[in-house]
Each structure stands twice: as structure tokens, then as C-alpha cells.
């Protein structure tokens, strides 16, 4: 055991995503600033301690009140450094906030104490996430119980899994291999065991993996089945003219609400519209849809959303 302890000690995490290198650049610059000022303060203190050490009990140094130019200098310099870091870090964060178009969509659900991963093609896995090299992957994340946090250190990405809502993150893996996946928000007894692996594969291997195994029905197909079974289709008639609006082509577009506002139809909107429909009824339709809060589990909601996403207008690209 003691020998194993000294093997493979990492001193910086893998840089395995498209953003890792640029985040690390900023990290190293701040490290440099930290070391510089720490060294400056430590060495100045040590120098003064030696140079101005008390040589006699009767010493009475001259009064120095302060210095306005110095105060201005050491206010402005930290202000400029902070402003520079703020701009750099924020622009990075903004640039990385939105997933690129055409990203692979994967759904992640956290629960005490495991990660459930659903691929739209129907593959599902637990505490593992298979992704292809070099293609953007967007994760839509939620939780069935408490707050968790989906963290892949090698990719420099992290996002809370919050019950009752969707959060998302995205990454493009740039190295094949196995990378740690951690829960980074304390979630109870086996928080430390809520970990797993992200497996980055060559694209053709990934295709083979995706099509292998007895992967039941796709999310879209499961959603279509639920849409019939739960009676959604009775009102949301696809051709229009039903008691509820047709859902063809709504995803990714704005919708007018009864209160005069418009809302963008995305995963979070659909989730709320299914669970608590009368919180924001669509303009032109009476608020008669029953609430499905407590009637559907997180996976069924994801199935329905996948189905509604697939109802595109003719000739429209996937949103």
C-alpha cells in the first residue's frame, strides 16, 4: 500500500476537452498572480523584519502618516488586475455557455447514489457515459431526489442536477480514454460512491457501441407510446383542431401564452407544461389540461420531450 501511494501521483488533471486548455491558461495566469503577490508580500515582510529589527529599547522611529500616491497605486493595480481577470473569465464562460448546434443530446438523471444516462437511441447506462471523440455532446441534467452535481474534472465541466428542473452542460472530448465522473454536491450517505467513468471512443467504435446490445426502444418511440397511452393524443391532435394545440413544430419556437407573454419552447418549458400546465396556459386554449405532477417519473417526462422534439415540420432540420 505505501508503495502504491507514491505511484501515479498526478499534478495536473487531464486536458481532455476542447475548453480544458483555455480554462487552464487562465488558471495558470491566476496562479502566477497569486505566487507573485504572495512572494512580494512575504519577501517584503522578511526584508523589513531584518532591516528594521529593533536594535535598542529606546528606538522611536519617525512618524509616517501614509502616502496618497501609494494608496492610489495599490488601489488601481489590483483593480486593473481584477478587471482583466473578470473580462477574461467571463468571456470564456459566455463563450462556453451555449452548446453548439448539432450536438449529441444525452439525458442524465441523478438519484441517491447513482447517475442514470439515457441516449436518445435507447441505450441507457448507469455511472458510465459513452461519448464519441471530437463531437459536441450536450447533457440535459435533472435529479429525482436531492441536489447532485455532475462533474468531469478532465473536461473542466460541472453542473448541478437540481430536482424539478433541467440544467445543461456541453463538451467536446478531445482524447479517447476513461475519465473520472464525480458527484460534486453533497447528497447523503454514499455521496462519495456516486462516481463513475466517462468513456471517450473513436466515432466508429461509438456507433458500434450505440447499436450493440439489446437497447429496447428509442426515447422517441417510448415517448410516442406514452403519448397515446396517457391520452395526450386525444386533445393534442397532430393535424390541429383539437382541444389542445397541435405539437407539431412547436419545439424550438416561441409560443404565445394566455397572459400575453411569449415563451421559448425548450426542454424546461415542456417539462413545466406537462407537469403543471395551468401555470402558463397557451393563448387561445382553455386551461383544461390535467396536471401530470406525480403521475410521470423523470424518464417518462424525458421520453415525452424526445417525442415532441421529433415532431418537426416538413423540411425543418432538427433543432
Amino acid at each position: 500500500m505505501p508503495n502504491a501511494m507514491f505511484q501515479n501521483i498526478p499534478f495536473h488533471p487531464d486536458q481532455a476537452s476542447s475548453i480544458a486548455r483555455s480554462v487552464d491558461q487562465l488558471h495558470f495566469v491566476i496562479t502566477g498572480i497569486t505566487l507573485f503577490f504572495t512572494f512580494l508580500i512575504f519577501s517584503t515582510i522578511c526584508y523589513f523584519m531584518i532591516k528594521y529589527r529593533r536594535r535598542s529599547r529606546d528606538e522611536r522611529p519617525a512618524n509616517i502618516e501614509g502616502s496618497l500616491p501609494l494608496e492610489i497605486a495599490w488601489t488601481l493595480i489590483p483593480t486593473m488586475i481584477c478587471a482583466g481577470l473578470f473580462i477574461w473569465a467571463s468571456s470564456q464562460y459566455f463563450a462556453n455557455a451555449k452548446a453548439p448546434d448539432g450536438a449529441i443530446e444525452v439525458f442524465v438523471t441523478g438519484r441517491q447514489w447513482m447517475w442514470k444516462v439515457q441516449h436518445p437511441e435507447g441505450q441507457s447506462e448507469i455511472n458510465e457515459l459513452h461519448v464519441p471523440l471530437g463531437r459536441p455532446v450536450k447533457l440535459t441534467i435533472t435529479s429525482e431526489d436531492v441536489i447532485h452535481d455532475f462533474f468531469i474534472p478532465a473536461f473542466r465541466v460541472k453542473k448541478d442536477a437540481v430536482p424539478g428542473r433541467y440544467t445543461s452542460l456541453w463538451f467536446t472530448a478531445t482524447e479517447t480514454g476513461r475519465f473520472h465522473l464525480f458527484c460534486a454536491q453533497y447528497c447523503g450517505a454514499f455521496h462519495a460512491g456516486m462516481e463513475g467513468w466517462v468513456i471517450v471512443m473513436e466515432p466508429n467504435e461509438y456507433e458500434r457501441w450505440l447499436n450493440s446490445g439489446a437497447s429496447g426502444e428509442t426515447l422517441e418511440a417510448a415517448g410516442q407510446r406514452l403519448f397515446q397511452e396517457r391520452g395526450c393524443a386525444n386533445c393534442h391532435v397532430e393535424a390541429g383542431g383539437g382541444r389542445g394545440p397541435s405539437l407539431r413544430g412547436v419545439f424550438g419556437h416561441p409560443v404565445r401564452l394566455a397572459n400575453g407573454l411569449t415563451a421559448a419552447v425548450d426542454e424546461s418549458y415542456l417539462r413545466e407544461a406537462i407537469l403543471t400546465p395551468n401555470s402558463h396556459p397557451v393563448a387561445g386554449y382553455p386551461p383544461i389540461m390535467p396536471a401530470f405532477q406525480g403521475q410521470l417519473d423523470e424518464e417518462q417526462i424525458l421520453d415525452l420531450i424526445a417525442y415532441i422534439r421529433s415532431l418537426r415540420n416538413e423540411g425543418e432540420a432538427q433543432p
Binding site: 488558471h27 491566476i30 481577470l85 477574461w88 473569465a89 470564456q92 462556453n96 474534472p153 460541472k158
Partner: peptide, 11 residues
């Protein structure tokens, strides 16, 4: 400073 910076705080 690492934690006030949005992008490094994520890690």
C-alpha cells in the same frame, strides 16, 4: 480570485 472568475470556478 480563482473562485470569483466564472470559468475557473466551474472546475
Amino acid at each position: 480570485l480563482f473562485l470569483a472568475s466564472l470559468s475557473t470556478d466551474v472546475q
